Lab assay of single mutants.
Amino acid sequence: LPHTAVCLVCGEAGKEDTVEEEEGKFNLMLMECSICNEIIHPGCLKIKESEGVVNDELPNCWECPKC
């Protein structure tokens, strides 16, 4: 993702460097949905019932829970 990318919900950049544990890092890193192209911190999504499908081949790419 470009350095200028920010979260659609909170308007902040990736914050994964501020935590140690892997789950915390994931919730604070910016992810781009391969379907709707929205860039968001997974932790900013209010959807709890399902998780997005992470694409292991492309960094910061997933199918968000909304899609």
Results as ranks from 00 to 15, higher is better:
residue 64 C to Q: 02
residue 5 A to R: 13
residue 46 K to V: 10
residue 26 F to W: 06
residue 1 L to E: 06
residue 27 N to F: 06
residue 15 K to H: 02
residue 44 C to A: 01
residue 40 I to D: 01
residue 59 P to A: 09
residue 12 E to D: 09
residue 7 C to L: 01
residue 53 V to D: 10
residue 58 L to H: 14
residue 23 E to I: 01
residue 17 D to Y: 05
residue 51 E to R: 11
residue 50 S to E: 12
residue 3 H to W: 02
residue 38 E to F: 01
residue 47 I to C: 08
residue 30 L to K: 11
residue 32 E to D: 05
residue 8 L to M: 14
residue 41 H to N: 03
residue 49 E to R: 09
residue 43 G to H: 04
residue 24 G to Y: 14
residue 37 N to C: 15
residue 32 E to Q: 08
residue 64 C to R: 00
residue 8 L to V: 03
residue 47 I to Y: 11
residue 16 E to N: 02
residue 16 E to Y: 01
residue 25 K to W: 00
residue 36 C to L: 02
residue 57 E to F: 09
residue 51 E to K: 11
residue 35 I to T: 14
residue 24 G to D: 09
residue 14 G to W: 02
residue 43 G to N: 07
residue 56 D to W: 04
residue 5 A to F: 15
residue 27 N to R: 11
residue 31 M to K: 09
residue 28 L to A: 14
residue 22 E to I: 08
residue 51 E to M: 07
residue 14 G to D: 11
residue 57 E to P: 05
residue 4 T to I: 05
residue 55 N to L: 07
residue 3 H to R: 15
residue 5 A to G: 05
residue 25 K to L: 03
residue 11 G to I: 01
residue 23 E to R: 10
residue 61 C to G: 07
residue 53 V to I: 10
residue 38 E to M: 13
residue 33 C to W: 00
residue 63 E to K: 14
residue 55 N to P: 06
residue 66 K to C: 01
residue 42 P to Y: 14
residue 10 C to D: 01
residue 34 S to A: 06
residue 3 H to P: 08
residue 53 V to C: 11
residue 41 H to V: 00
residue 51 E to S: 08
residue 46 K to W: 08
residue 43 G to L: 03
residue 18 T to Q: 10
residue 23 E to Y: 04
residue 51 E to W: 08
residue 28 L to I: 05
residue 39 I to F: 00
residue 49 E to T: 12
residue 19 V to W: 04
residue 45 L to P: 03
residue 18 T to L: 11
residue 27 N to L: 08
residue 30 L to W: 05
residue 27 N to I: 06
residue 32 E to W: 06
residue 6 V to W: 01
residue 15 K to S: 06
residue 18 T to A: 03
residue 59 P to F: 06
residue 56 D to E: 10
residue 45 L to H: 07
residue 9 V to P: 01
residue 42 P to F: 06
residue 14 G to R: 12
residue 1 L to F: 15
residue 31 M to Q: 02
residue 13 A to R: 15
residue 19 V to I: 08
residue 23 E to V: 12
residue 14 G to T: 06
residue 46 K to Y: 12
residue 31 M to F: 06
residue 42 P to A: 05
residue 11 G to M: 05
residue 31 M to H: 06
residue 32 E to V: 05
residue 19 V to P: 02
residue 30 L to I: 04
residue 46 K to T: 15
residue 17 D to H: 13
residue 27 N to Y: 07
residue 30 L to D: 00
residue 53 V to E: 11
residue 60 N to V: 05
residue 33 C to R: 02
residue 62 W to C: 00
residue 52 G to P: 14
residue 66 K to P: 10
residue 59 P to C: 10
residue 31 M to W: 06
residue 54 V to T: 14
residue 30 L to T: 07
residue 46 K to P: 13
residue 36 C to G: 01
residue 48 K to G: 10
residue 27 N to K: 13
residue 24 G to R: 09
residue 59 P to H: 01
residue 65 P to S: 07
residue 29 M to I: 02
residue 67 C to W: 00
residue 14 G to K: 06
residue 65 P to T: 02
residue 64 C to T: 00
residue 47 I to A: 11
residue 22 E to P: 03
residue 6 V to I: 14
residue 35 I to L: 12
residue 49 E to L: 10
residue 29 M to T: 05
residue 18 T to M: 09
residue 33 C to F: 00
residue 35 I to K: 10
residue 62 W to R: 02
residue 39 I to A: 11
residue 36 C to I: 03
residue 29 M to W: 03
residue 43 G to W: 03
residue 58 L to P: 04
residue 18 T to I: 08
residue 27 N to G: 09
